[in-house]
């Protein structure tokens, strides 16, 4: 077990409200170097929303996100530049670009050739393009898609699209990779392969934070697992601790338990809906406009 404790990612008090709905409620969260951390929770628990807060797609209502000690501005391209890369729950590849081009776009933050150098095509430009392509091919090799470099992304089978999304994210040379349900829709063999891939990514020195509903996958993979229920972090710990916790089971089965955040939530929602209805439109469009 890796026991290094330098934090890569530190989220403190992250809250995301959509009008009356609090999707994420003051979550404190840390990912250390060399760790694979799992984030689980029932549907609608706010896992994806939490990811969007980390990556700047949503501006958190409250709280800050720190990457290697510096506070991240809530702008997706700056977050990626700082070193956090992600994949999406519903695959968002550049469908009509080739596999190679998708990965090259991922290199955007690590290259800097602008319009002028593209127009003048000096030796520096050629060298940078060649280096980018080599790096992209290495990554395609790493995920096993090198042979498909010239295929359009939209024509890949589902499992390979997920792999390509990972390769594209890795192209930005991140220190932390966020994976949102990387095995959704995969068969057991593909899931196994993805497990190997995530371990290999960690071995490259990249910390991984992964959302997943497949418990076997999560408990095989993760050094630490956090459970999010109705926007609140319920339990956090090693696989054994989380598996043994009855509140987690209850949360998944939808049974009531002591200290139920559901009651508080309901009251909260009712209060907010009567009081702050107009707020909803401004907040929910904000993420889209970034």
């Amino acid at each position: 077990m890796t026991t290094m404790t330098t934090p890569v990612l530190q989220a403190s008090g992250v809250t995301m409200r959509f009008g009356g709905l609090t999707a994420v409620r003051s979550v404190d969260f840390t990912v250390n170097t060399g760790e694979i951390v799992g984030l689980i929770g029932p549907n609608g628990a706010g896992k994806t929303t939490f990811f969007n807060c980390l990556t700047g797609l949503y501006v958190p209502t409250e709280g800050t996100v720190t990457y290697k000690g510096t506070v991240l501005p809530p702008k997706p391209h700056l977050v990626t530049k700082a070193g956090i890369a992600r994949t999406f729950q519903n695959i968002r590849l550049f469908a009509n670009m080739t596999v190679l081009e998708n990965v090259l776009v991922g290199r955007h933050t690590r290259t800097k050739e602008g319009l002028w150098s593209a127009l003048l095509r000096g030796p520096g430009f050629r060298k940078a393009e060649k280096a980018s392509e080599e790096r992209a091919m290495e990554l395609l090799d790493f995920v096993g898609l090198a042979a498909k470099r010239d295929h359009l992304a939209r024509n890949l089978p589902y499992g390979e699209q997920r792999k390509l999304e990972i390769a594209r994210a890795l192209a930005s040379e991140p220190g932390l990779l966020l994976l949102d349900e990387p095995t959704a829709g995969m068969n057991p063999q593909e899931t196994r392969a993805t497990e190997e891939l995530v371990f290999a990514i960690r071995d490259k020195g990249i910390a991984v934070l992964v959302i997943e509903h497949d418990m076997r996958f999560i408990f095989n993979l993760c050094d630490r697992v956090a459970v999010l229920v109705q926007g609140e972090k319920l339990v956090e710990g090693t696989s054994d601790v989380v598996q043994a916790d009855e509140r987690v089971v209850a949360a998944y089965l939808g049974e009531p338990f002591e200290g139920d955040p559901g009651t508080a939530e309901t009251a909260d929602v009712a209060a907010a809906e009567t009081g702050a209805a107009p707020q909803s439109s401004t907040t929910s469009t904000k993420g889209e406009a970034q």
């Binding site: 797609l57 391209h77 550049f94 776009v105 050739e113 930005s172």
Partner: peptide, 22 residues
């Protein structure tokens, strides 16, 4: 070029493009 690819990426999916650092 790099800039041309980022134009196409924006055209294809703006959210994903910004999440890729564009």
């Amino acid at each position: 070029s790099r800039i041309g690819r980022s134009w196409i990426a924006i055209r294809e999916d703006e959210t994903a493009a910004t999440a890729m650092g564009i």
